[in-house]
């Protein structure tokens, strides 16, 4: 579906290599403090991009602006031809009603630092909740899908467990399965391993690695620079709400150009 009507129509001959997701001029303030200044980013289909930066640099806020968990004051996000959260009418950008926003959000999956599994639902119920209640798939189909996804993240035997009975690493893998169950076009990771005990980081990174290798479009906010360098195609470095450097992830080895990036890397590597 497209959220655009009126004069601002989209060119119909969009090229296949056009970015899947494009953000332009995203600005956001919290109570007078501007955390994002005019941030723009393109991510192509199948690409894995990591957002790096110190805490407070705005990387998580930017990620949350992409799926409308935060409302940017200025700027737009386009996902596969849809203008997210807005429609254009009579020369002005209007906010979409919550219901239509919700429909758009189904196209973006998100994995949180704190997992945020539904505490009152079992693992299986967590995974099939949105496919059944939001996407309207049949329970049987959603269940079969869910079991497949849980097998992929290595948790098929935990279908009946409640989140509180799982380790952090297991919860995060269920959260990834839950996001995948909606068959999103892009998966956003907000520091997926920052709340984990060290011995559980790898099991989660392995699942993310498999997804990236499998061609999933991903945007990953992370402090795991080693992982970012190995798995991601591209890095974006933010400082004080601005992109100060971006480039191929291989450059994270030694070739970072900007002094701020080099300084950051020297501290986390």
């Amino acid at each position: 579906m497209t959220a655009v009507d009126g004069p601002a129509t989209l060119p119909t001959d969009r090229r296949a290599d056009e970015p899947l997701i494009s953000a332009r001029g995203i600005s956001k303030s919290f109570g007078g403090h501007q955390v994002l200044h005019d941030v723009s980013l393109d991510v192509r289909r199948g690409e894995a991009v990591c957002l790096l930066g110190r805490s407070g640099s705005g990387k998580s806020t930017f990620l949350r602006c992409l799926n409308l968990l935060e409302r940017a004051e200025r700027g737009i996000v386009m996902l596969d031809g849809d203008l997210l959260g807005h429609h254009v009418r009579r020369g002005r950008v209007h906010r979409l009603p919550a219901r239509r926003e919700a429909v758009q959000r189904q196209q973006l999956g998100m994995v949180f630092q704190q997992f945020n599994l539904f505490a009152h639902k079992t693992v299986l119920e967590n995974v099939i909740e949105a496919p059944v209640k939001v996407a309207g798939r049949s329970r049987r189909e959603a269940r079969a899908d869910a079991v497949g996804l849980l097998e992929r993240v290595g948790l098929a035997e935990k279908v009946g467990a409640y989140p509180g009975q799982l380790s952090g690493g297991q919860q995060q893998r269920v959260a990834i399965a839950r996001a995948l169950a909606m068959k999103p076009k892009v998966l956003l990771f907000d520091e997926p391993t920052s709340a984990l005990d060290p011995e559980m980081v790898n099991e989660v990174l392995q699942v993310i690695r498999d997804l990236v290798v499998g061609g999933m479009t991903t945007i990953i906010v992370t402090h795991e620079v080693g992982f970012a360098r190995e798995v991601c195609d591209r890095f974006v470095f933010l400082q004080d709400g601005r992109i100060v450097e971006e480039g191929p992830a291989s450059r994270l080895n030694e070739g970072a150009e900007h002094a701020a990036t080099r300084d950051f890397l020297s501290k986390v590597l």
Binding site: A102, Q106, M110, F112, F115, L117, F118, A130, A179, M182
Partner: peptide, 19 residues
């Protein structure tokens, strides 16, 4: 986070409250 997770899955507001 419970609300945010439900929002991110594309649940409409009424459903987030009820379920």
């Amino acid at each position: 986070g419970q609300r945010e997770a439900a929002l991110a899955l594309g649940m409409p507001p009424g459903q987030i409250f009820r379920r």
